[in-house]
Design a protein around this nucleic acid. Structure first.
Length: 420
RNA sequence: GUGACCGUAGCUCAGCUGGUCAGAGCACCGGGCUGUGGCCCCGGGGAUCGUGGGUUCGAAUCCCACCGGUCACCCCA
C-alpha cells in the first residue's frame, strides 16, 4: 500500500472542517485589524532562506527540503513564511504603498524534522506581517491580535512571554561578552552548548539541561547591554500591553531560531501541548528588508501554528449541512426523474441528495436517515403512474401525497412545500 | 539525527507460556419487513496478523533487521 510520506498528514473531513473554521476565525479578525491577504508560492530559491533565516541556523543547516531543479538551480520548499513575504514586498515595490502595510498569508510550510506531537514535516501557519511601522505600539498591537485570534478559536490558558534581542549595535558587545563567559566555563557545559558557544552563543541560554542552566545563572543578560533606543522600545512595548490588561512574562532566556529578529520577540505558549508548546511566535525584524536588497524598512510579524492551534481549539458548532430533501427513486424511469429534479432543485438553492444505484426503498430511507435529511420524496413507478409522489417528513414520520402534472410542476410543488 | 514504547479487518481491541489463532464490537452492505428510516434479530463482504529474514516438524505468537506510528531529546509554529 502506498502511504502518505512521513510527517505529511491527511486531513479527513471532520478535521478539515475544524481547520476551515479556524482559518475563518483568523481571517475575520485579521480583516477587522486592517490586514490584506496575499498568496505566495510554496517554492523559493534556496538562497532566499539562507540569507534571511541565517546560514548557521538549524532550519537552514538540516531541516530544509532542498533540491536542484531541472535547470540546475537550487530550490527549497519554504520552511517559514516571512522570507517569501519580504521577497514579494521587495519584488513588487510594495514599499510605495501607504504605510504601514499589513499583510497576512495562510498556507503550508515544510521542515524535515522528526515528527511528534504538534510537529509535522508539512505544517500550516497563519503568518502576519507589518511593514513600515517602527514603534513599539505596533509590536503590542500584533501581540493583542495573535491572542485574539487564538482565543476566537476557543484556546484559553495562554502564556505570553516576551524579550528584547536588541539591535545590531547593542547585540554585538553582548554577544562577545556572552561568548567569553561561555568559553570560560567550557568544560562544564554540555556538548551542544560548547558548539553553540562558537556558532550561536545566544542559543545556549535556551538549553534544556539543568547542569547548563545552573552555570547560566551568572551569565550576562542582554537587558544590561541594551542601548538607549532598544531599552525604551522594550519598555514602551510592555507598557502598551499592560494598559490593555495583557500580562507579559519577561523571559530573558527567550531566543529565536531565526537570525533576522531585532528588538521585540514574543512567544505564546499553551500548557497541554506537550513539548511543542509554542502556538504562536514572532517579533521585529527591522534589518531584514534591506538585507535582502529592499529599502530600509522596519517590520514586525508573527506566525500561528495551525496544527498546534487545532490541538487546543474548542470549535463551536459548525456541523455539515444536512440535505433538505432526499429523493428516493424506484425504477429506471423514476431515477431519470430524480436526476432531473435534483438538478432543478439544486439550482434553486435547495440542498438535495438522491440515488443512482437502484437501491431498495429500505436502503434509500436508511441512507436518507443517516444523512439526516429533513424530508424524503418517494417516487416509484406507482407514483409516476398516478402522478402523485409522496413527501415524507423524517422527524415526524408523516407523509403527504404530492400530486403533480409534470416534472417541472413537481419541482415547483416540492419547492413550495419545503420553502413555505 | 538520538532514545523509549508500540504495529492483528476502515476504527477500537482480543488472541501472543509456539500446535482449529485468524476472532469480537463498531462501521459498511443485505435480509427479516415482495415499496417505508431510526430500535431489534439474522446474514455477508472485508486481514498477505507492518515488511523481510531467521529459529522450529509447525510462528500473529520467539529472535534479528528494516519500515511506520506515538512520545521525548533536539529544534520550533
Amino acid at each position: 500500500m502506498i502511504k502518505a510520506v512521513r510527517g505529511f498528514k491527511d486531513l479527513l473531513p471532520e478535521e478539515a472542517r475544524v481547520f476551515h473554521w479556524l482559518e475563518a476565525r483568523a481571517r475575520e479578525i485579521l480583516l477587522r485589524y486592517g490586514f490584506s491577504e496575499i498568496r505566495l508560492p510554496v517554492l523559493e530559491r534556496t538562497e532566499l532562506f539562507a540569507r534571511s533565516i541565517g546560514e548557521a541556523t538549524d532550519i537552514v543547516e538540516k531541516e530544509m527540503y532542498t533540491f536542484v531543479d531541472r535547470n540546475g538551480e537550487s530550490l527549497t520548499l519554504r520552511p517559514e513564511a516571512t522570507a517569501g513575504v519580504v521577497r514579494a514586498f521587495i519584488e513588487h515595490g510594495l514599499h510605495t504603498r501607504p504605510k504601514p502595510l499589513k499583510l497576512f498569508t495562510i498556507g503550508p510550510m515544510f521542515r524535515h524534522e522528526r515528527p511528534q506531537k504538534g510537529r509535522l514535516r508539512q505544517f500550516h501557519q497563519v503568518d502576519v506581517e507589518v511593514f513600515g511601522a517602527a514603534s513599539a505600539g505596533m509590536d503590542a498591537e500584533l501581540v493583542a491580535l495573535a491572542l485574539e485570534i487564538l482565543e476566537a478559536g476557543g484556546a484559553g490558558d495562554l502564556r505570553l512571554e516576551v524579550n528584547s534581542l536588541g539591535c545590531p549595535t547593542c547585540r554585538k558587545p553582548y554577544r562577545e561578552s556572552l561568548q567569553a563567559f561561555l568559553r570560560a566555563r567550557r568544560d562544564r557545559l554540555c556538548e551542544d552548548c560548547r558548539r553553540r558557544a562558537e556558532r550561536n552563543p545566544l542559543r545556549a541560554l535556551d538549553c534544556k539541561r539543568e547542569e547548563c542552566q545552573v552555570e547560566y545563572r551568572e551569565a550576562p543578560e542582554l537587558t544590561a547591554f541594551l542601548c538607549e533606543g532598544c531599552r525604551e522600545h522594550h519598555r514602551a512595548f510592555k507598557a502598551y500591553l499592560e494598559e490593555v490588561g495583557l500580562a507579559p512574562v519577561e523571559n530573558p532566556r527567550l531566543v529565536r531560531g531565526l537570525d533576522y529578529y531585532t528588538r521585540t520577540i514574543f512567544e505564546i505558549k499553551a500548557p497541554g501541548l506537550g513539548a511543542q508548546d509554542t502556538v504562536a511566535a514572532g517579533g521585529r525584524y527591522d534589518g531584514l528588508v534591506s538585507a535582502l536588497g529592499g529599502p530600509e524598512t522596519p517590520a514586525v510579524g508573527f506566525a500561528i501554528g495551525m496544527e498546534r492551534w487545532f490541538l487546543i481549539a474548542r470549535p463551536s458548532e459548525s456541523p455539515g449541512l444536512s440535505p433538505e430533501l432526499f429523493i428516493a427513486p424506484l425504477g429506471e424511469e423514476a431515477r431519470r426523474w430524480a436526476f432531473q429534479l435534483a438538478f432543478r432543485l439544486r439550482k434553486k438553492g435547495l440542498r438535495v441528495e438522491t440515488d443512482h444505484e437502484g437501491r431498495s426503498l429500505k436502503a434509500l430511507l436508511r441512507q436518507a436517515n443517516r444523512l439526516s435529511a429533513q424530508r424524503v420524496l418517494i417516487l416509484g413507478e406507482e407514483e409516476l403512474r398516478k402522478k402523485q409522489a409522496l413527501l415524507k417528513d423524517l422527524s415526524s414520520g408523516r407523509q403527504i401525497p404530492l400530486p403533480f402534472r409534470d416534472l417541472r410542476d413537481l419541482a415547483n410543488r416540492i419547492l413550495i412545500e419545503i420553502r413555505f
